[in-house]
Simulated scan of single mutants.
Amino acid sequence: MTFDNFIKTAWADHGDQPLVVAERLSTSPQLAQTSSQIQAFTRLITHVYGEHLADWDAGIALLQSLPRLANEPAALSAIAVSTATLKYGRGDQDALASLTPLEQTITLATASSLFAAQQKLAMAIDSYSQALMSYPEFTGLPEEIPVHRALAVGGNHLACVLEEQKQRSTTETAAMLQAAQSALKHWQRAGSWLETERAQYRLCRSNLQAGLKDQAVQAARRCLEICTQNNAPAFELFFAHAVLAIAQKDQNDAFELHRAAAIVCLEQVPADEQHWCEAELKELNK
């Protein structure tokens, strides 16, 4: 099996079988030989051993077993950041001490996702807030792309988890909105149109949960505009029309217009992808 196939299969399997994937990872560090491969391996280790298993020590040990490429600073940084993230997750207060400011921001943003996945919401909010404050000014340099990605991914994950809470405090609602807004801001700097339109979708959802209907409609419209401008596939268009319909449920004509458009798009979505659309379809048919 090639390295790329190994990683692709592991990501596909880890949600339902995190222990099985962890075992595969623990016996395969030798597969990562290049800088890009090591970076991909560290991301998967951090996600599986951190978010899914909270097995900090085993994850750290596995990271330390990865090859050290002396002339590949990106690979060395990836190992350092992932190790610090798992150490921070287990409660090591000095985990960030040896990192650069950029690495500290990535670590804090990634740790926020670990805490959110474990429903440690106060810790997740605090970690993400620290990430935003730890490196507030960006100059647009290429080496900052991983920071933007970490803040975008962390913000999206935190917003999503907070949206799902049946009872949110005022602090949690504010954190949800900040996370969704920050995810959009940083995907605009580091992602493609696809990540940006999905961030608009997330912002719409967060605004709806916060009771901010007008802002939700604006975000949903921007989501649909981006899809239209980029000839998005039916899968993306379904979600854009669906969330715009849901945001306008109190306006019958607008709701029915976008509900009908979403259904048309759904008919064009490949059969093996349609299960992802079930939650929105249920909302549209209430």
Rank of each mutant, 00 (worst) to 15 (best):
A116Y: 01
F255D: 08
Q104P: 09
D16I: 12
R189H: 09
R205C: 10
T228Y: 04
L31P: 01
Y201M: 09
C160D: 11
E197P: 09
Q215V: 05
G154A: 02
T2D: 13
R202H: 11
C265H: 02
E225I: 00
N207M: 06
H186Q: 03
A242L: 07
K185E: 07
A117Y: 13
A262H: 00
F6D: 00
D92M: 05
R205K: 07
H241K: 01
S36R: 12
W187T: 03
S129F: 08
V147F: 05
A84K: 06
G140I: 09
L257E: 13
F235Y: 11
L132R: 14
R205D: 11
A232M: 03
N156H: 15
L244V: 10
L31Q: 13
H14V: 15
C265P: 01
S182H: 05
V264E: 15
T228N: 12
A220R: 05
L99Y: 00
E256F: 11
T27A: 10
E143K: 09
K87R: 15
S112D: 04
C160E: 13
T196F: 09
R90G: 00
V161A: 08
K87H: 13
R259S: 06
T46C: 09
W276A: 14
I246V: 11
L141W: 11
L96D: 02
A247H: 05
L158S: 02
E195L: 01
N231S: 00
F239I: 03
T196R: 14
A179V: 07
N5I: 07
M176L: 04
Q200R: 05
T42D: 14
N5T: 12
P73T: 12
K8V: 06
H52E: 14
A131C: 04
A40H: 13
E267C: 02
R68D: 14
R189A: 08
P18I: 00
R205H: 10
E273R: 15
A131H: 06
H157D: 07
W276F: 15
A54H: 11
Y135G: 09
Q209G: 09
E197A: 12
T83L: 02
Q39D: 12
A10Y: 09
Q37A: 03
A180N: 04
D214R: 04
T83G: 01
L19I: 10
F235E: 11
L25M: 03
